[in-house]
C-alpha cells in the first residue's frame, strides 16, 4: 500500500466533512474491495475515512412496507436478520451467498452498492426490487443509481446512508459463482411486486447490472419458471472472459432466471 492518513469519524456527517476536507480521500466500508486494490498498489487514496464507527449508518429496520438497511450493515447481519428474512427472504438468501463467511462478516451493503462491481450480488437485488439509495444528500432510485461498470450516480463527497427496499416475498435470487473468486459469473434476481415484474442480471453485462425485459414480459403473463421456457438471452452486450464466454453466460442467464423464479414461487 501507499501511505495514507486514517480517520475514523463517529457519524456520517463527520465522515462527509472529512471527505470534503481531505485531499484524495476515500471512504472505507468493509474494505474487501478497496484494501486488496490498495495492497496491489492499484489505488492510492491520500486519506481513508473509515465508516465502521458511524453508528448512524448501521442497522436494519422495517418502516411500513419498506425494509431499510443501513449502509454499514454487513452481509452476515443482513443474512441473519429476522426482519430481512420476513420482509424479503430472497435478499437474506443473496446476502448469505456473498463471498465466504469471513467476507460476509466485514463486507457491507453500502460498500458493495457504492463500488458497483459488475460481478457483485447486491446491485441485482436493488435494481429488481426497485430499491432507493438514500445518501447524505438525496434519494436515488436504483435504476438511476447504477450508471455503468464501477460507476454510480454518487457525487464527490456523497455518502450512502441507507438502502430502502419495498418488501416482497415474491422474489428469488440465483447465482452461478465464479469457481475461483466466488463472485457472480451470472446472478439473476427476480422480483414480483403487485403486477410489476423485474428481472435484474449481474455478473454478465458489459455495462454492469441490467434488466431483462423479455423475461419480465414473459413472467408478467404468468409468474412461473415455465414461462421462461424457450426464452434465450442474446449474447450481445454480454461480457466474456477466461471463465465464461458471452454465449455461455447468456445461456446461464436463462438457467439462473428459472432457478430464481422457482425460489420466488417456493418451488426451489
Amino acid at each position: 500500500m501507499y501511505a495514507f492518513t486514517y480517520h475514523r469519524p463517529a457519524t456520517a456527517r463527520q465522515a462527509a466533512s472529512l471527505l470534503a476536507k481531505k485531499e484524495d480521500a476515500k471512504l472505507l466500508a468493509g474494505g474487501h474491495t478497496l484494501l486488496p486494490t490498495m495492497k496491489q498498489r492499484l489505488a492510492s487514496p491520500g486519506a481513508l475515512v473509515d465508516l465502521s464507527s458511524c453508528a448512524d449508518l448501521k442497522g436494519i429496520t422495517r418502516k411500513g412496507r419498506n425494509l431499510v438497511i443501513g449502509a454499514m450493515t454487513t452481509h452476515a447481519e443482513v443474512a441473519a436478520s429476522p426482519e430481512v428474512q420476513e420482509a424479503i427472504p430472497a435478499l437474506a438468501y443473496l446476502a448469505s451467498h456473498i463471498g465466504d463467511p469471513h467476507v460476509r462478516h466485514r463486507g457491507t451493503i453500502g460498500g458493495s452498492v457504492a463500488n458497483n462491481d459488475p460481478a457483485a450480488d447486491y446491485p441485482a437485488a436493488l435494481l429488481a426490487l426497485g430499491a432507493t439509495v438514500v445518501t447524505n444528500k438525496r434519494k436515488l432510485a436504483a435504476e438511476e443509481f447504477f450508471s455503468g461498470l464501477y460507476e454510480t450516480a454518487l457525487d464527490e463527497g456523497e455518502i450512502i446512508v441507507k438502502v430502502s427496499f419495498p418488501a416482497t416475498s415474491k422474489a428469488g435470487y440465483a447465482k452461478f459463482r465464479n469457481p475461483a473468486s466466488r463472485y457472480a459469473l451470472v446472478g439473476v434476481f427476480v422480483a414480483k411486486r403487485g403486477s410489476e415484474i423485474a428481472v435484474a442480471i449481474t455478473g454478465a453485462g458489459e455495462g454492469g447490472v441490467f434488466r431483462w425485459p423479455e423475461a419480465e414480459a414473459a413472467l408478467k403473463a404468468r409468474f412461473a419458471g415455465k414461462s421462461l421456457d424457450g426464452l434465450k438471452h442474446t449474447a450481445k452486450g454480454i461480457n466474456g472472459d477466461i471463465h465464461a464466454d458471452a454465449e455461455y453466460r447468456a445461456h446461464l442467464i436463462g438457467v439462473m432466471a428459472k432457478q430464481a423464479v422457482a425460489q420466488a414461487t417456493g418451488k426451489a
Binding site: 475514523r8 474494505g31 474487501h32 484494501l35 486488496p36 473509515d50 462478516h105 466485514r106
Partner: peptide
C-alpha cells in the same frame, strides 16, 4: 483468519487501526 469481536475475519483485509 482471526476472530474480531467474536467473528471470523480475514486479518489480511482489515486495517489494524479499524480494530481500535
Amino acid at each position: 483468519v482471526v476472530h474480531l469481536d467474536g467473528k471470523a475475519v480475514k486479518a489480511c483485509t482489515t486495517l489494524a487501526l479499524s480494530c481500535e
